[in-house]
């Protein structure tokens, strides 16, 4: 399982209710059910992946986070997870607010656009960066709102949500992000993982 998922599983308390937004093939949900005895639900936009989830016995609805979070009442979940898709939404602000309405807490992971390889790519080549975690060309990428770890921290102040815990994933190593190391983490981490609250 991806290190990212292991971190998320560790962040989530046992026997809670979790909604995985963009649950993909259900790998994270399965692990949450198995390791944390969680009541897990998923939303997934791809029909094929919903069918894969069903074949694993997972409760998943086919849908789009921007349209389908609306149907859940306030605080229906203890945690709402959004893995590496914030950058693909038309309006990330609305999505974050919806996540925090539906869930008491949210876990958001973002591919870090501030990573040195991304910066170097643009600096040297002068073309939009293509890396392992960002494999698409500028014209066919689903990612329309890329941000860096620093941007996300800044965003928390702009739209007013609390970052409870922020973790950086660098070469499969996990470390805490704080004010004093933000510059370095923003340069070296491939992924930022944030536990946030209203």
């Amino acid at each position: 399982m991806k290190t990212e998922y292991k971190i998320i599983v560790d962040l989530i308390e046992e026997k809670t209710r979790v909604l995985d937004v963009g649950c993909d093939d259900g790998t994270l949900m399965e692990s949450l059910k198995k390791n944390k005895n969680v009541d897990a639900r998923g939303i997934e936009i791809s029909k094929d992946k919903v069918q894969t989830c069903v074949s694993k016995g997972l409760t998943v609805i086919e849908g789009n986070a921007e349209l389908d979070l609306k149907q859940f009442p306030n605080d229906s979940f203890d945690y709402v997870v959004l893995g590496q898709t914030l950058q693909a939404f038309v309006n990330p602000e609305i999505v974050i607010k919806e996540l925090l309405r539906v869930g008491r807490k949210a876990i958001i992971t973002i591919p870090n656009f501030g990573h040195w390889k991304v910066r170097l790519n643009l600096l040297i080549k002068g073309t939009m960066p293509i890396t392992e975690s960002l494999p698409n060309d500028w014209y066919n990428t689903p990612n329309i709102h890329m941000c860096t770890i620093k941007d996300f921290v800044k965003f928390s102040k702009i739209i007013n949500f609390k970052i409870f815990k922020s973790l950086a994933l660098t070469n499969k190593n996990i470390s805490n992000i704080n004010n004093s190391n933000l510059f370095y983490k923003n340069l070296f981490a491939e992924l930022g993982i944030f536990l946030i609250e209203k």
Partner: peptide, 18 residues
Amino acid sequence: IVIALNAIGADVGFVEIK
């Protein structure tokens, strides 16, 4: 129907088949 079920936290899955 799915929306009504989610509104009360019921256990509901949904798929639209192509």
